[in-house]
């Protein structure tokens, strides 16, 4: 009809509004939500630590319980408790539903 305003190439015209995000809140809310849950902590070196997040602080120092160290998909170490210095952390991923 109106050739002067073509629809955006990647977003077809959709009368319904975009679905709301399934979760909302700040990064801090996420971190509060995962305390006590199973998480994967990836360090900048690429090493993963899987365990239960005991707590963390403003530097992103992390205390983990029942920790497994994974390198290239293999378990290379296990720790009952582990303190990870925050500067090494790349991300914290929830490993179970929140």
């Amino acid at each position: 009809m109106d050739d002067s305003t073509p629809p955006p190439p990647s977003a077809p015209a959709d009368p319904s509004p975009p679905p709301p995000p399934t979760t909302s809140g700040s990064p801090t809310d996420f971190l509060k939500g995962v305390v006590g849950k199973r998480v994967v902590v990836r360090l900048t070196s690429g090493v993963d630590y899987r365990g239960i997040l005991s707590c963390l602080d403003g530097y992103m120092n992390i205390a983990l319980e029942q920790t497994e160290e994974h390198v290239n998909g293999r378990v290379t170490n296990q720790y009952g408790d582990a303190f990870i210095r925050g500067n090494n952390v790349l991300y914290i991923s929830a490993a179970e539903p929140l």
Binding site: K32, V35, G36, S54, C55, L56, D57, N61, I62, A63, E65, D81, A82, F83, I84
Partner: peptide
Amino acid sequence: MDPASNGIQEPFDLI
């Protein structure tokens, strides 16, 4: 803070 299972409130408590 979250009452962790063994009285750890911040990571430095572990140390």
